[in-house]
Design a binder for these strands. Structure first.
Lengths: 248, 248
DNA sequence: CGAACAGTTGAGCGCGTTCAACCATCGTGG
DNA sequence: CCACGATGGTTGAACGCGCTCAACTGTTCG
């Protein structure tokens, strides 16, 4: 527990070889070529570890950092003047956070939910490197397009679906994303989220999330207790939630 | 009035010089260099015109097209099994739609609200060209990052704000985006949206949008009648809606 | 042992919905 | 030319989903 993990995380020193291994694990959707891996390593990324429930980057910070998630759960969100919070997306292994135009402001905060290990790179350096590594730029483009599709699905979810469907859909999405990086099976997964986190992602209150979870449990659609999400009947929930993972 | 404008639009033939002019108008946020413009022209884009209220691209279509908006208003949305609709974003002059990984499916529909003129390019061709034109790839990356930020703000809007604030926020956002491309002043703009469109973007019903518009009009915050949005007191609405255009 | 935090359950309220009319405008065809 | 249907907008009444307020339980950590 470093003295400054709240804003900077504790730094971990890795050999170049270790970094390469991290990176191969970082691109689950699309394997990086050797050249691409090298392009990132040349940027001299910092590997940082953050304790659970710490802020990694706060909205409005003039912070020039882009993050790659190696392990743990995080979320990007915005705090509102009235004290409420909206989570835009959860950040899991392999996700990229904060990629943007050099100089553009970053209007969301980034928070570690469980303990996280992330790669930190200078956004400016990345932008410079992308010019020389077009293949890498395209990969980032597609990663961003995927993230954008996920946000689109969240919009549909919050805008047009009932609370119980909304909740099941999100838990199914997280399951599918975790499965893609080998952290879940079709029957369930470990989930460090609180009911409050879920509420903030779904535009609900924690109290109502609680009631919906009970309802879903009682209808044998899914159960979320003690940090474990379980789908007793995967087809049944998917159909109930109108979940189709093609957008992922 | 082509016989097939419903799915394909009527094609317009332009000289290379005309295309160049179109493109300079297309990148309002960031001026394209000559080389970049040429890279796009080399892709042999098709200029198409769509009648108001026609579908340009339907969700699930195996369509390999990326669109650039030259003029008019459109929206990307998804239709749900129960007949409701969620608009993810409105598409205005200069916006890019449908950029994605080669082969990735496109889970949203694209609809012309007013008459639209758009550039159509093969996504595959774009992907190929980006490899050779890294600068262009970075521009697209940033355009996408901006779109992603807009979606994030829409999530906040739908998830955590009351109907009247939500509505004002969206109308302010559209105003700011139009202003950036020279189609609006701070005091208002022409808007071809129906109350139903607004409802579908905001996760509300058209009936409630109607009531909120009346409320906002009566409190002198904004008026939207006969296709014109007017802000009698721009500072007052912005403060009421907690609108800060930095994310745009 | 007590404080802090997450989860649980109940009662009642209110925002936004649904259902139902009705009006205004516009393009069309008899 | 006017009748007509279609579309978008407007208003009222009542319902209900999800919220607020409040109390209580369970667990973890100092």
């Amino acid at each position: 527990m470093s003295q400054d993990h709240k804003t900077h995380g504790s730094s971990i020193v890795l050999t170049e070889r270790g970094l390469g291994q991290l990176l191969t694990a970082l691109a689950p959707q699309q394997t990086l070529s050797k050249g691409e891996t090298k392009a990132i390593i040349d940027l001299d990324p910092r590997v940082a570890q953050y304790a659970p429930r710490t802020v990694i980057n706060s909205q409005g910070d003039q912070n020039d950092t882009t993050y790659f998630v190696y392990s743990g759960w995080g979320c990007t969100y915005v705090d509102l003047p009235d004290g409420s919070r909206q989570i835009a997306d959860f950040q899991l292994r392999g996700d990229i956070i904060g990629l943007r135009a050099d100089g553009a402001t970053w209007e969301e905060s980034f928070h570690a939910i469980s303990e996280m290990i992330v790669l930190e790179l200078s956004t400016k350096d990345i932008n410079a490197a992308l010019g020389a590594a077009p293949k890498l730029a395209i990969r980032f483009l597609f990663a961003l397009a995927r993230k954008s599709a996920i946000r689109g699905e969240h919009l549909v979810n919050i805008g047009r679906r009932s609370a119980s469907v909304r909740l099941s859909h999100l838990l199914l999405e997280l399951g599918a994303r975790l499965e893609a990086v080998g952290l879940a099976g079709p029957e369930g997964y470990d989930c460090p989220l609180t009911q409050h986190d879920l509420a903030d992602a779904l535009g609900l209150t924690a109290i109502h999330v609680n009631r919906m979870l009970r309802e879903l449990r009682q209808s044998d659609l899914l159960s979320f207790r003690n940090g474990k999400v379980v789908f007793p009947n995967p087809e049944a929930v998917a159909s109930f939630a109108h979940f189709d993972g093609d957008y992922l």
